[in-house]
Simulated scan of single mutants.
Amino acid sequence: MEEEQVEQIPPPRKGYKFIKYLTVAVMFIVVFFSLGLIGVETTSSQEFCSSCHEMKPQYYTLKASSHSEVDCVSCHIDPGAENYAKAQVNGVVEFYKKQTDTYLAPIKMPTLIPDEACERCHNMKSRAVTASGDIIIPHDKHKTEGIECVQCHSGTSHGEISDRKMTYKSDYGKWNHKLGASVMSDTKYIRPQMDTCMECHKARKVTIECTACHESTMIPDDHKTEKFKAGDHGKIKPSDLETCEKCHSYMSSVEYDLFKQDPTYKKYLNNEETDSSNVTVNAYVKTNTFCKDCHGERPKSHQITSFMTKHGKLSKDTQKCFICHENRITSDAPVTNVQCATCHPSSHKDTWRKKHPIDIAENQKYDKSCLKCHVEKTCTKCHRTDSDHKAKK
Rank of each mutant, 00 (worst) to 15 (best):
T280P: 03
I136D: 03
I77P: 00
E272I: 02
R298P: 03
K267Y: 00
K205Q: 11
D386Q: 15
F95A: 12
E82V: 06
S331E: 15
K235P: 00
Y84V: 01
D186F: 10
Q46P: 05
K286N: 04
R353C: 07
D221Q: 15
V26R: 08
E119W: 05
V375A: 13
I147E: 03
N83R: 01
N337P: 10
E215M: 13
T380R: 08
E7Y: 14
S216Y: 10
K372G: 05
D221F: 15
D367N: 12
H389T: 04
T207A: 12
C294Q: 07
S347T: 05
C121Y: 04
H233S: 06
R120T: 03
E3W: 03
A230Y: 05
H389S: 08
C291R: 03
S185R: 11
C247R: 04
H248V: 00
E376T: 01
K372F: 05
K224T: 12
H295M: 11
G91P: 05
K320P: 01
D367G: 07
T274L: 02
E226T: 07
T380D: 04
K174L: 14
C382D: 02
Q5T: 10
V73A: 01
K14Y: 09
Y59C: 01
E69V: 07
A81D: 00
S277A: 11
D163W: 09
R384L: 08
M109S: 02
D101L: 14
T318H: 13
